[in-house]
Structures are given as structure tokens and as C-alpha cells.
Amino acid sequence: MKYLVTSIKGGVGKSSIALNLAAHSGSQYITNDITTSAIEEVIQIPINKKRIPAELTKLENTVFDLGALSSLLDPKIAHAASFCDVVIIPTRTDPRSIAATIKTHQLIKDAGKPIVIIINHFKDNKKHDAARSQLLNALGKVPILAIRETTLFDRVSGDGIEWFLNIQNVKGLYMLQRTAEAHSVVYDRITAIGRRGQ
């Protein structure tokens, strides 16, 4: 399975979701971000490349974490969308993030791939529900999943993928274990949507 995680807005949790999804699915994590967290096996695509290198397009299990350039798509994003099985657009609940999510969806939908939106890093259910309603009104029927605010992303960035994969064996982290299970449900749904779209 090939996943593309993207947005034209920074700060929506794109890299965190991409990294956790890569760990969950046993996929190679590939990014165009010039600043990466403490991950051992990152493949970084040089910022000056306009396309994904051919050898990376042939890898079977990949998560592409690709940010945009201002309000335009980096050409690598359009290229990745052409061969990835599913596109994930993370968003926060604030108006700027919602507007950027709608714009990202408009820019990427012509690739004809399934698109999943994740409302990310929220505490307030009312804000989540309002954001979901706005997105459905603007985009029509689109899968919208949710990941509540959590410190899990910070722990994975600091402690690495192996820690995430073995969290169930760590004593005293009951809430993070439950959060990891909730994330797994979201990632499994994304994979199922991608498979249906193949």
C-alpha cells in the first residue's frame, strides 16, 4: 500500500500522522521536509526535485509525507498522488486549517484517488463536530476520521518507531496504549479505503 499524507497548511499534524501510519503499517517513511525528527530510517527527497525519484515510486509499502509550497502544490505531491493508493489530508478545527483542507482537496481530487480527511489534535467535541459539518458541506461525501489531542505523537518523535510498536509492553502507559489502539483503528480504516479504491 502506498499512502500520501499532505496539506497546503503547516501545523496540522501531517508529519506526526505520516510517521505513526508508517510505523503501524510497516511502511517506509519518505518526506520532502528538510527538518525530520529522530527517526533512523527516513528517506528525504531533496527539495529541488520536481518528481519522486523512480526507485521510490517502485517501493511497495510507503508513506509519503509531502508538504506544499505556500498555497500551491509542490509538483512532487501531484506526482505522488498519481501512484499512491490513498491520500490523507490532516486538519485542525480552526477556520484557516479548514479552508486549507478544502483547498488541498480541490487541488488533489483530480488524481482520482480516495481521499480521507483526519480532524486532528482536538479536545472539544463541539469544535470537531462544527469542523466536520463545514467539511461535509464544502466537499460532499468524503471519509472524515478523527484523532484527539494526544502526547503520543511527541513520544514517537522522541522515542522512535520501535517504542510505538512495543507500547503495549510498557508499564504505566495505559492511556497512551489506549490512544495507540484508537490510532490503529483510524489507520486500518485508511488502509481499507485505499484497498477499496485500487
Rank of each mutant, 00 (worst) to 15 (best):
D110H: 14
L136G: 00
P46H: 14
G13S: 07
Q177M: 03
F164H: 06
I8V: 10
T62C: 09
Q198S: 12
S70M: 12
V116Q: 04
G197K: 01
A130C: 04
R178T: 00
R196M: 10
S7C: 08
D124F: 05
P75T: 05
P143A: 06
N169D: 12
L21M: 14
I8K: 00
N61V: 07
N32W: 15
V186L: 09
S70P: 03
L19I: 11
T36C: 01
G197L: 05
R189T: 15
A182D: 09
L56M: 01
M175C: 03
L19D: 02
T31E: 06
Y3M: 11
L4S: 04
E55I: 08
T91A: 02
S7K: 03
L72H: 11
E149A: 11
T31V: 07
E181A: 15
C84K: 06
K141A: 15
L139P: 08
P75W: 02
I17D: 00
F122A: 00
K113F: 03
P143R: 04
I119E: 00
R155I: 09
T179F: 01
E149G: 04
F164Q: 01
P75M: 01
A192G: 04
P90W: 05
Y187V: 05
I193D: 09
F164K: 02
L66Q: 07
G26C: 05
H128E: 07
I144Q: 07
A182T: 02
K103V: 15
Q134D: 10
